[in-house]
């Protein structure tokens, strides 16, 4: 097995954010998982808490950057977005729209009952 040469980068980066950084607890991970509509088991929540904290620790170094007066990027290429005529160009094909639905009936998507 080859030596894990890129370890050195991990160490280099970790040294940058030793100290205080925002971290999440398992309850927060559960809340976020609920927002994202992903069911997590207790074990998963615990494991994800550690992983998320590792990632949040890594991104913490952005706090070193002076961003005063800097515009946030909204478009990476400086071209004006094209416009088109506001007319219908597609549609009228319900069968194609539902073709891949796991459950459908008469060109409607079927879901569990939402309103009593």
């Amino acid at each position: 097995m080859a030596p894990r040469r890129d370890r050195c980068y991990t160490r280099e980066h970790s040294s940058l954010f030793e100290g205080i950084y925002m971290s999440v607890d398992t309850a927060t991970v559960r809340r976020v998982a609920r927002l994202a509509r992903i069911k997590v088991t207790d074990d998963e929540a615990e494991r994800m808490t550690n992983e998320l904290n590792s990632i949040l620790g890594f991104v913490e170094q952005l706090n070193e950057v002076d961003v005063a007066g800097v515009e946030p990027m909204t478009s990476v290429v400086s071209v004006k977005m094209r416009r088109r005529q506001d007319v219908v160009t597609d549609g009228e094909d319900a069968a194609a729209v539902v073709a891949n639905a796991p459950v459908s009936e008469d060109n409607f998507f079927l879901v569990p009952k939402v309103v009593e």
Partner: peptide, 27 residues
């Protein structure tokens, strides 16, 4: 993992600290 990180950094109260700052760094 990535969906959770993304949901977290966009969630109420964290957007400016994470996403907005990252987009400024991107500039």
């Amino acid at each position: 993992r990535r969906i959770l990180i993304g949901t977290y950094v966009l969630s109420a109260g964290y957007y400016d600290a994470y996403y907005l700052r990252a987009q400024k760094v991107r500039t």
